[in-house]
Design a protein around this nucleic acid. Sequence first.
DNA 1: CGACCGCAGTCTACAGTGTAGAGCAATCGG
DNA 2: CCGATTGCTCTACACTGTAGACTGCGGTCG
Lengths: 202, 202
Amino acid sequence: MRKLKTSRQPEILDAALAIADERGLDALSMRAVAERVGVTPMALYGYFRNKDELLDALVGRLLTGLTPSEEAGTGQERLSEIAWATRRLAREHPAVFPLLLFRASVTSDGVRVVDLIYQALLDAGVPEADVPRIERLVSTFVLGFAISEVNGRFSSASDESRTRRGADLPAHRRLVGHLAADDWDAEFAADLADLMRIIRPV
Amino acid sequence: MRKLKTSRQPEILDAALAIADERGLDALSMRAVAERVGVTPMALYGYFRNKDELLDALVGRLLTGLTPSEEAGTGQERLSEIAWATRRLAREHPAVFPLLLFRASVTSDGVRVVDLIYQALLDAGVPEADVPRIERLVSTFVLGFAISEVNGRFSSASDESRTRRGADLPAHRRLVGHLAADDWDAEFAADLADLMRIIRPV
DNA sequence: CGACCGCAGTCTACAGTGTAGAGCAATCGG
DNA sequence: CCGATTGCTCTACACTGTAGACTGCGGTCG
């Protein structure tokens, strides 16, 4: 089987996404997907060369959903829209989302999103020579933030409580009262605002 | 075995790190670690409750190395130093590094690093109320950048080549000539500089 | 000295993983 | 009607994490 069948690819990806959403990434095995599709595990290998390719396709599929509805608005507005859509995606599919950071977006879907961001940055007045770098800067942050949020890297049992422990954490102690944070919407908005100041330097 | 032995923990972590460095994260199995230590796989369970805990300990160990040598310099300088040390760590241990983003740094080693960053931000003049958020912003970016770099999310077969493909990527086309990038040292430096402008507005 | 205890490590076993290789039933073009 | 192709199944292998039971050894007590 050199050439892959495509007919049931969407159906298979649906099943894979559903499993990851319901039972986590660890439960996303070829056997589980096959069972859900109603087929033996080996049947999947007619549609994807191996599990990695299946995951890549899954990533591509998620990326497609990021294309914003309209081409309207200023560059900054469209940039914001993509950022929020990315974060929304992370909350809808927390288990698979981290794959976006790892499985490099080589798929055409990924490139399409990058192109939209390039365009938005250009429209926002970023010099051509800086656009690719700023794109990487911003999307690295957005992906990292969304992953950290759904993965609990933030919060982590509240800094407040850690501070009470014996270890000497002078800065923590000085910041008691500012350490509690739970409104990630607000924090994400503030971060984006700060990043926008990089893009349009006054 | 309720309580864990600690005697050979460092030796085990050494072995684990070496395996990951040499043969990748996938090769980091309990059996492989055990063999390298010269022991049966089940012996490891006297030192770590399970594989996850072993990986957490490994993360803690990596974090310890981030503590900078000196408390000297301005806040910004120390911040920079930590950022570069983090990136260096990623290049030394590309396979395990991504774990830093996922296994929330609950360990005391992780908190210690956070405290250093807090202090640096305070010294750099960031208002107390903003320190925790800025810490998350900066470290999210630094971790994301380092992971992207060692994982090949950047580069990805060069944007240039993608641009030649049929798909209509107007912004890519317009940016031909600026798309090539390979000096990640310079890019990281530029990104840090931009972030510093957030910290010290003007 | 002998009996005991707990510790460190081993051995076996189980349920689960990704996937190679061969085979089988139905369908379609000539 | 025949042969080829398609779509799938079955079996099997090497590997994973880890539960449970076991063994040999060193030190402490009576």
